[in-house]
Design a protein around this nucleic acid. Sequence first.
DNA 1: AACTGTTTGTGACGCCCGTCACAGAACCAG
DNA 2: CTGGTTCTGTGACGGGCGTCACAAACAGTT
Lengths: 223, 223
Amino acid sequence: MSLTLKDTPLFQGLSENELETVKACLKEKTFAKGDLLFREGECCERVFIVRSGRVKLYRIASSGREQTLETLNPGDTCACNPGSPNWSCSTTAEALTPCAAWFLSRSDYVRMVQANSKLSHTLNKLFAERLRNFSTLIEEVSLKDVHKRLIKFLLDMLAQKCDSAKEEVLPIPFTREEIAQRLGAARETVARHLSELKQAKLIDIKPKQIIILNKTGLEKLLI
Amino acid sequence: MSLTLKDTPLFQGLSENELETVKACLKEKTFAKGDLLFREGECCERVFIVRSGRVKLYRIASSGREQTLETLNPGDTCACNPGSPNWSCSTTAEALTPCAAWFLSRSDYVRMVQANSKLSHTLNKLFAERLRNFSTLIEEVSLKDVHKRLIKFLLDMLAQKCDSAKEEVLPIPFTREEIAQRLGAARETVARHLSELKQAKLIDIKPKQIIILNKTGLEKLLI
DNA sequence: AACTGTTTGTGACGCCCGTCACAGAACCAG
DNA sequence: CTGGTTCTGTGACGGGCGTCACAAACAGTT
């Protein structure tokens, strides 16, 4: 019932044989919430693929404030440059929940990508998608206020939630602090904007979840 | 004397034969300052490589404020996802100066990357570098104030200027407005911080150039 | 030189949001 | 239930920076 290799975007389209050789190189590790999978600036000695749980990739300022760059879900990979040696991690990876991940040594990773053009193409696609996401993040952080970023965050979460238990009930697996880090804002600011939206009867706030009362109303505020 | 194909990072390491077939697919176009090479949201029908001049890739908010994501110099490419069709440009490309660029149709581009694994690996490397640059940009825009971003910009410009005419004389091929767009700030704010640095005798301001009076002093302000 | 358009510097103003402080809510282990 | 820990909401405060406005410097043209 848990994630298998062939379900990961990275190894999509590989033959059974190829998957077997990949599998032989992987080592599985587990992490508790808050554990670091790697630190920014470390030499990039391995690559991981999330098997279960959630991992955030972030940067931290000397002030202590964080900016989350990506939240990795099962199947996602942190994979970076397969090319140059002495490449150092540009972000820190931290487990948001208890989680498990497959690790692949740098040398195995490089060898595989060099040998397997299918893998190389997949990597290109994944990189391009991340570049696009980063572009959007840059625009939002730089040009949009917290209010809009928060609304967009809620609508995004609503769009990508697969469990469609009830239409507008949005389970929130993030603390306010984590939301703030994703938005590049302070915890208190997020709380304030949420109350404001509640006041305006656009959402309702329950423990661990947020009820979207007026989706189109929210969408209008994005313009 | 002008840029040739084999000097571009994208086509690095290709054989003479391969370069010839690439060349056969390229069309050269020229642009005046301010011309758009493509618009955000357009269907991504071609890829370009800058031959001369400078091009900025940016996003624009409804308020009119811009954030520059990258400044492309000769040899650089805007190349994005070779994989999926219906991929739309995630940024707008505008000529900062009069410039020339080679254009490659999407179909030719995809075919080449599919057929040539060397090219695919190069693309991975370029993407990875851009991802890293974007990470840094996100951190700066989100977590650092304009003061630090400006100082870092000056030091970066100083580091990458190859014409070492005089040590600390820094020719600035950008208007204040363009600097502001790169930093994600307002024109006036940049002007104010520059005057402040001049007041502190860390820099001196001349038309079209900035003199770095105290490099280590600037570096200390970054901490 | 005079004219026009662009680029730059600076003052005034206001708001968004980050920080500090604290109290109430929720959660968990025993 | 109970105490401790984490999470959450809210008030007060101040600073950074975006916006508007205007004048001075500069560049290019006829």
